[in-house]
Nucleic acid binder design. Structure first.
Lengths: 211, 211, 211, 211
DNA sequence: CATGAATGAGTATTCATTCAT
DNA sequence: TATGAATGAATACTCATTCAT
């Protein structure tokens, strides 16, 4: 989001390499979302990225590594954005709304990525549990921190576990979003309906949590 | 080979057949839960069920059909149990608590099945979306019906969509349960902590929904 | 050679399995000899054996295992035959001639096998060194034993190492045979010329070794 | 990058080029000996030579050509040395001893080259048969010439083929050397034991050949 | 009904070679 | 000359499915 991070000059080759890696990731998100991880052929990723099959292996160890890298890259970025956003908000209500907003923004803006994250995180492969979960936990900790803060301030009820609530919030949003994304495969989903659903959810969640 | 078996009437062979189908389903749930759908070999299901590989194909069209059948069989049964339970409850609060209890019962009692349903429903294969989703929707409709009923009675807030809330409830419970199930892969998860989490969730959810 | 070993009855399936394994080995010897181990595709072995590609893997772990099995199967048999033959001979001269004869018989009768053994034993893969070498050593020990016996009887000179001489004999025969086998790729090699060469070699070797 | 280097006349760049070719050959001998021809990656040769992958292709047509060039370069040189050495010797005994000595020297001094020559000559690729064999034959002719000379002089027995004996001598030495080289992979082989073996072999061979 | 040996289509990955810089 | 990123052809191996017994 901030352009400052990019000011560091790069050599042509480094930029080219970085571009290619990025292109492959983007392509992978697209095809994983469409066909799922297992049903996607490496050659399909390559084709979608406009590179040769072998090129994938210059930037990633193997197919699994591509999936893991999607998590690492994207969730890292989400964490940075979320941290910054939470700093800008003063009230608990505002923070919770921001969390929901951002998660929704992620879903609306990069629906494919959302599907990859929500759908593929569940493949019970040891690999994913091992690599993807830690980053996911960081995200949850951040949300749990907000709830704990609200409890300390006496705004939110103290008889619930912040981590459980954080996990429940993600689950609820994720479930709603998944239904929304998958609900109407034939026609484009209506962003307004998703936003409406999320607002309802925010109200219920906050009212329920209120001390 | 032995001619003696023939004296038994149809019933016995039917029962035997039904037993074998059931054994295969049970075995499939077990290995799917442990290794995931894609990583599971048909021969592993066969071995776990104590039958030959080819026998699987006498009872199911193919590997996909085994997974789909798990949904059909089990969710059908769950629906029957849930309907009966909801009939026994008079208050909305009681019905919601029953729903949560049952979903928890499912998770605790048949943890493998729970993992198969929550994890494998997400494999974005067209097949599964097509066959498994409808049953899942029936389940959601049932829950949404309870909420709509509460709204009509003026007990629950009317400014939210029953279906969205039903979906959110499933998502929240599912998320909490998944964290619980995967959280401590090394030692057996503590059922009490799950029950505690669910109770908190029920409170927050009902308080948030209250008119 | 003796039919007695085969008297044990086999079930149909066992015989069939054994036949198929044998067919694969024969086919592998043929194509390995023609194209070398590395240049040979597994599918070529399968085609030559008249089985499906996957069938190879019902009888062998992988391509390497096929090569190793050739050594194990064939050299084991050669050892049995050689031991019996040496028992039948009383004089050292006779025994050495028998060794040379048998090694020649192997070359003439199963020229492909000879090429596989002499050519592919040299692929410096750890695998082959590890698995094939031990059997080869048993063969050399047998020959060295004959020479040591001749030394004890005072017939052969005592100032040479039996093992070195055994190795040299194999090397000399092998070299001659290889030249013979490869010498005229266009027309069929003349067995008589090989036999002549071997007789000369036997004379020189025995005269040189004589006490 | 530095312009100063340009002042040097053609000769230097030619020398530099020649050096690089030589470096690549040396590196190839090293890695071929260690891992075998097929298991060696072109990139490994490049790395061992300290050049880029593509540079290999400025000096050689392809990977096969590198192997063939090793034979051409080294055996050519061996032939020159051998011819000179044979001229210096007057007796047949001396010449045969010189041949054995040189072949041993080759083995001891450049053990890697020896392994490449003895091991890789056997890869039954048509290419190698076609290009490497002729040079090898020249070497054998030289040895056969010595034996034929001895026969003409009446010193060596006339009832054997000089070419067969030349081939057998190479085979015997080669076999002994290979056993020596591979025999003790863990500890460094003892040069004295090889020399002892060779001396024994020379005695037996010459005594057996004597008229 | 049950078996499990056999099948062969399907694919991730490697690596020799090229060529823009 | 030298580089090394990019290419894409080539292949061992797996495993869902079949079918003769």
């Amino acid at each position: 989001m901030s352009e400052e991070d990019e000011k560091a000059p790069r050599t042509r080759s480094k930029r080219a390499a970085s571009d290619k890696r990025e292109r492959i990731l983007r392509a992978a998100i697209e095809v994983f979302a469409k066909n799922g991880f297992y049903a996607t052929r490496v050659s399909e990723i390559a084709k979608a990225a406009g590179v040769a099959d072998g090129t994938i292996y210059l930037y990633f160890e193997n197919k699994d590594d591509v999936l893991v890298s999607i998590f690492e890259d994207r969730i890292s970025k989400l964490l940075v954005v979320l941290r910054r956003a939470l700093d800008d908000e003063d009230t608990i209500d505002g923070k919770v709304r921001r969390i929901i907003e951002l998660q929704l923004g992620l879903l609306e803006g990069e629906r494919d990525l959302a599907e990859v994250i929500t759908v593929n995180l569940r493949q019970s492969s040891r690999l994913l549990k091992q690599y993807a979960a830690p980053l996911f936990r960081q995200y949850l900790e951040l949300v749990a921190g907000v709830i704990a803060e609200g409890q300390k301030e006496g705004i939110l009820r103290a008889d619930v576990s912040p981590r459980v609530m954080a996990r429940a919030l993600w689950g609820a949003l994720d479930g709603v979003a998944l239904t929304w994304a998958l609900g109407t495969p034939d026609r484009a989903p209506d962003p307004a309906s998703l936003r409406r659903a999320a607002t309802q959810l925010a109200h219920v969640f906050l009212d329920g949590l209120r001390a």
